[in-house]
Amino acid sequence: MAFKIASSPHINRQLQTSTVMQRVLLCAMPALVVQCAFFGWGTLIQVILAMTVAMCAEALIMQLRQRPVIHTISDNSALLTAFLLGVAIPPLAPWWLILIGTAFAIVIVKQLYGGLGQNLFNPAMAAYVLLLIAFPVQMTSWVAPITAAQHSVSFLDTLHIIFSSSQIAVADTYRLGIDGTTMATPLDTLKTDLHSGITTADSLQKLIFNGWAGKGWFWVNLTYLAGGLMMLRLKLIRWHISAGVLGALFICSAVAWAWEPLTHVSPLMQLFSGATMVGAFFIATDPVTAATSNRGRLLFGAIIGVLVYLIRSFGGYPDAFAFAVLLANISAPLIDYYIKPRTYGHLRG
């Protein structure tokens, strides 16, 4: 008999990367359902489209890099990236938009840097920013929440819109035909209103708001919050980054709101608008591009929170999560360099 030689430890928690990614996706599923309920089938189609493209792109690159294909794509990380991009772009965006975005995320942002674990930037957010800058029109026309729109768009219609060759023309017909199907996001609306001198309170009376937050958006954010808490409970993520993001955003907006409520967005609306919750729990917590130590992660989250607040309030884009995350990604190595845990038996870290 031959005895097997192996390095200690000989036991493992048996929680693989693929399982982690899978569970994260599962935790995000309820939110996807809610998003579809409020914004139609578009989001689901975009997510599925993105996942397909992501798997193909990853497999192709693995083939080119002569690495084990199945072994790599079975870690489910590409699926998570695709999911995050899919839920982030407008549901009725044309098909090539998500294709470009996902391919960019996987090929350029992730694999060109060396694959999973090596990328400097969050792939989904980098792709989102690329799309936002390159195709601002398509990226800023969001579907109105179904409750706000007069008509709901059927699954087939949605498919037609997304895959139509002359997309803009078709979308225009729909836009003309179905009034109010696409419009600016609540944050965008609010920003435009504030710029044109309308107070927060007046702006919130618009159809798109439910009184203090965007219609539908509130519920979507709430489900993401629930999913995030679930992940915390399953120990898929640690609390530091999310707490940093939400805490910093809340504190910043609370201070501003307390100072001048008429021209500032309330902290609660900040927390339950746009991509706040999905960002805080599903995007910023991407461990690859975040800081490593606990204190570092708290700081990393706080940087995102402050940046989100600053860009939302003073920047040119209504929602700022992608930019904030990318900027924080850049600072992650620096944070790791300066914030190290104090090793046992050492006076300083």
Binding site: M1, A2, F3, I5, A6, S7
Partner: peptide, 10 residues
């Protein structure tokens, strides 16, 4: 270098 240990088949 664990791989360098000769594994004897008995």
């Amino acid at each position: 270098q664990l791989n360098a240990i000769p594994v004897k088949t008995l």
